[in-house]
Nucleic acid binder design. Structure first.
Length: 593
RNA sequence: CCGCCCGUAGCACAACCGGAUAGUGCAACGGCCUUCUAAGCCGUAGGUUGCAGGUUCGAAUCCUGCCGGGCGGGCCA
């Protein structure tokens, strides 16, 4: 039963019967009652005064009376100015709880027949992942899980940027100074090894620029003429010509990097359904240029370059192909759109990419719509803000990059330290303990990054470690562990969990139930708004609500058997929803901690 | 110069489609473990929601202008 919907129907009936007016269900929305008043659901009457032609108070009273006497589900009501606060009948609460517990699909919305492809992570193979990538990965992973829960068929993809000038920079530096070093000999993860040479390239490049400038070359010129850069560009050309030596080095170094990434993804708990490589897609898109010219969506300039005019969309004129016939960045993205569609026939396609590319995706999507692609309307850029340090943006040359592997390790260590200090896990095996530390450390990190509205930037201060108390992942995990202890005891005491009638439940229990009932709506909304943060907020509020209940009401010392059963069931459902919500965020929850 | 996003307590974040006295955590202060896990709970203090107008029964929320911060804008990715 959908309690809120039922109430709305009764309100609709009230207006029909008392005021002879038909109202749309959609406009009769309810809000949670503020905790200082009795009741759980509040109906605001202000918007309907034109219909009732009564004062707000009288309107609320009339509707309240109708609901109380006719709906069979409202025990009582109270009116505070124009707010009608409703108290739900206890038997209704109990049957709602029963319904949710028995519904094995609670938290999984019905299949809507739609397919969505979600692209995220998309690392470059010339350096290891950093904190910014973590936000991307966690967001992408969470939104994938949320869409699945919302009834979509999801395909998670990772388009690896494995070619291009930046890759050649690492390769060139390695060729020059690598001395046949390997991840094994250097005792470095492969991605970190590649990153080391990328940094070396940059260092040399900077020096060369300085030298040129001291010889009187302008800065702009120096940046273009530095010998090592020219050499890298030459290498890129050789790569494009599939030069054997270059290809061999490229394959060797990329393999190292992939090995390194695999370890990082594993420690993050992230997997993909498909991995695309840019080396296999970078030539796509040229065919579409011709199609666009034929359709008169694109136009050609005298020099032969191809453009699209997006001024009507509030964008600019945009270059799609250079005068020499080579393609630019966006051309391959255009091609990749079709490539993905050929692969998956999706209705929607989500790109999890930082907000620095907002403009780029506006352009890309406008183009695909103009090209009348079947998936055109379903393209969405899940844009997120940067993760900044107190000093501003992370900069590799200033050594302020927060490395993903290091940060995750640090989280594990901190989690272990906290857990051991509290000394509550003597019963766990060494393996179980280790698993717990990872669960909690990663939970803290993921929750920290996911609780914030994606489009806002996040400030990360490395000097202040990520919290384990308060509005955090571990707080929620802890609540789950606590409930697990209750459930263990209930089962060892052999308590029968069949719900039986009760006269009254506490307001804390009502609020908790009302919150639990909102779960599926939150999933739908999180998908609709592309925001895991909504779910993070929801599950935090749930844990908070449960802890209040837990503190105030005793379960096993309650004399009334029916209430004992009720509270255990309520706890069981809460644990279930916490686990499910956290899983949708990519976070696991422990049974003990 | 133009475009997009953000601005809420010392700090970090909420506030659903415009609704009640703008919530939560951290930090500070004061309570609560012989009773189901104190990574918890309860309380105190902390706000001119960047500024100025407008829309209306009602604005953190919608509109306009300004200020501050971020990101981006025809042959880079």
């Amino acid at each position: 039963m959908n309690l809120e919907k039922e109430i709305r129907i009764h309100i609709k009936n009230a207006f029909k019967s008392i005021f002879d007016t038909d109202l749309d269900l959609a406009q009769l929305f309810l809000q949670p009652t503020r905790k200082e008043f009795e009741g759980t659901h509040t109906f605001v009457v202000f918007p309907f005064l034109k219909v009732t032609k009564m004062s707000p108070e009288d309107t609320a009273v009339v509707v309240g009376n109708f609901l109380k006497s006719r709906s069979g589900m409202i025990k009582d009501y109270n009116v505070v100015s124009g707010f009608l606060n409703l108290e739900i009948d206890t038997s209704v609460w109990v049957s709602c709880l029963d319904d949710m517990l028995k519904n094995q699909y609670w938290g999984q919305l019905a299949d809507n027949g739609k397919k969505v492809m979600i692209e995220f992570s998309s690392p470059n193979t010339n350096k290891p992942l950093h904190l910014g990538h973590l936000r991307n990965n966690f967001l992408g992973d969470a939104i994938s899980r949320i869409f699945e829960a919302a009834g979509y068929q999801v395909k998670k993809t990772n388009l690896v940027n494995d070619r291009g000038i930046h890759i050649c920079k690492s390769m060139l530096a390695y060729k020059k100074w690598g001395n046949e070093e390997t991840p094994k000999s250097a005792e470095l993860k492969g991605d970190h090894l590649a990153g080391k040479y990328y940094v070396l390239f940059d260092k040399c490049y900077k020096e060369e620029i300085a030298t040129l400038i001291s010889k009187g070359v302008s800065e702009d010129e120096a940046k273009k003429l530095a010998p090592i850069l020219l050499e890298a560009q030459e290498m890129l050309q050789k790569w494009e010509q599939k030069d054997t030596e270059v290809m061999t080095l490229w394959k060797k170094m990329n393999a190292w990097v992939y090995e390194g990434f695999e370890i990082t993804y594993k420690s993050m708990g992230i997997e993909f359904d498909v991995i695309y490589k840019e080396s296999e897609t970078y030539l796509l898109g040229k065919g579409i240029i011709e199609e666009g010219l034929n359709k008169n969506v694109f136009y050609q300039r005298k020099d032969g370059s191809v453009w699209i005019d997006l001024k009507e969309e509030g964008l600019d004129e945009k270059l799609l192909m250079r005068s020499d016939g080579t393609s630019v960045y966006i051309t391959q993205d255009i091609g990749t759109c079709d490539f993905k569609y050929d692969d998956f026939c999706m209705d929607q396609s989500i790109y999890v990419v930082g907000n620095e590319q907002n403009y780029h995706f506006n352009v890309l999507f406008s183009i695909m719509k103009k090209m009348e692609r079947p998936y055109g309307e379903g393209l969405y850029h899940l844009s997120y803000g940067m993760v900044d340090l107190p000093s501003g943006r992370m900069k590799s040359r200033e050594g302020t990059i927060v490395d993903a592997d290091e940060l995750i390790d640090e989280m594990f260590t901190t989690a272990a330290k906290h857990t051991l200090e509290l000394g509550k896990i003597e019963k766990l095996t060494e393996n179980e303990s280790k698993n717990l530390f990872k669960m909690v450390g990663l939970g803290a990190l993921k929750f920290f990054l996911l609780k914030v509205d994606p489009k806002k930037r996040i400030l990360f201060d490395p000097r202040e470690s990520i919290e384990f108390q308060g509005h955090t992942g571990p707080f929620i995990q802890y609540t789950h562990a606590r409930i697990s202890a209750i459930l263990r005891r209930a089962s060892s005491d052999g308590i029968n969990e069949v719900l039986l009638p009760i006269l009254e439940i506490h307001s804390r229990e009502q609020i908790l139930l009302a919150h639990l009932m909102r779960f599926e709506e939150v999933i739908a909304q999180a998908a609709r708004d592309y925001s895991p943060a909504l779910l993070a907020q929801y599950v935090y509020d749930l844990a908070k609500g449960y802890n209040g209940f837990y503190q105030e009401l005793s379960i096993f010392n309650e004399p009334n058997d029916h209430l004992v059963t009720f509270r255990i069931s309520l706890s069981r459902l809460t644990a279930k929803v916490i686990r499910r919500s956290m899983n949708l965020l990519g976070i696991e929850v422990p049974n003990r901690m």
